[in-house]
């Protein structure tokens, strides 16, 4: 499995470097006041979604999967490697973007506290994991080309829903208030949902891949 993760890193090395540069460029925009610091959190979602997608797209183009399955790694190894690689990408994105936000906060460049920025980065990481949990089985079943449409719909539904709810709250629309205990437990609950969702997604993908023909 480590060979397959190394393969993804080697193939996407240039793209990963570019994305890391993006974080610092956007960090610069935040310092100059062009963007709000929360944009760095959004980059976590962008990386966490586009990198696994690119990885599957490049595998499709090279017909890599049928070769990888013919090696001792087999079908299970290919799926496991893709999920571990996705986790790594999300983790590195959270650390890179979150770390930069905290550094800029400690340098006094934003009024938001470092604790809140860490929470923002973690929340974005959790959301990205949930999106990946939906997208990865589609990617492995339909390939990158067809799954792109599904991922766009997922992205629009989740982010559109969030913007809609935010707008309704802003317009003082009477949204039902969740109980205090639920609000307090929300970060942990969201984290748990993301982890469980990702695990269920992994099991679904293993099932899909076990039946797939190459």
């Amino acid at each position: 499995m480590t060979g397959l993760i190394y393969k993804d890193l080697a193939v996407l090395r240039r793209q990963l470097s570019t994305l890391l540069v993006f974080i610092f460029v956007y960090g610069g925009f935040c310092i100059t006041g062009v963007f709000d610091f929360s944009i760095l959190g959004a980059l976590i979602a962008v990386f966490g979604l586009t990198v696994p997608m690119s990885s599957v797209a490049l595998d499709d183009a090279a017909h890599w999967d049928r070769y990888a399955i013919a090696t001792p790694a087999g079908r299970r190894g290919v799926v496991a490697a893709k999920y571990v690689f996705t986790l790594l990408v999300v983790a590195v994105s959270v650390v890179a973007a979150g770390g930069l936000m905290v550094c800029l906060s400690l340098a006094g460049l934003t009024k938001t506290s470092p604790e809140d920025l860490v929470l923002i980065a973690l929340a974005c990481g959790v959301l990205t994991l949930l999106l990946d949990a939906v997208i990865l089985p589609c990617l492995l079943k339909f390939g990158a080309e067809k799954a792109r449409i599904i991922s766009m719909i997922t992205f629009v539904v989740i982010f559109g829903g969030a913007v809609l709810l935010g707008g309704m709250a802003k317009d003082q629309f009477a949204l039902p208030q969740p109980p205090e205990w639920l609000l307090a437990a929300l970060p942990v609950l969201c984290g748990l949902v993301a982890v469980i969702g990702f695990f269920i997604s992994y099991c679904v993908s293993q099932g899909i891949y076990a039946k797939k023909e190459f």
Binding site: A10, H63, W64, P72
Partner: peptide, 29 residues
């Protein structure tokens, strides 16, 4: 599959990789 070496009808290696990188990947597989 540990006993089998495979050559398929077309190359399955990513265009961006070089033989050294491919060797490293396969050494772990």
């Amino acid at each position: 599959k540990t006993q089998i070496g495979v050559v398929l009808d077309e190359s399955s290696f990513h265009e961006a990789l070089n033989p050294v990188q491919i060797g490293k990947i396969l050494s772990k597989l």
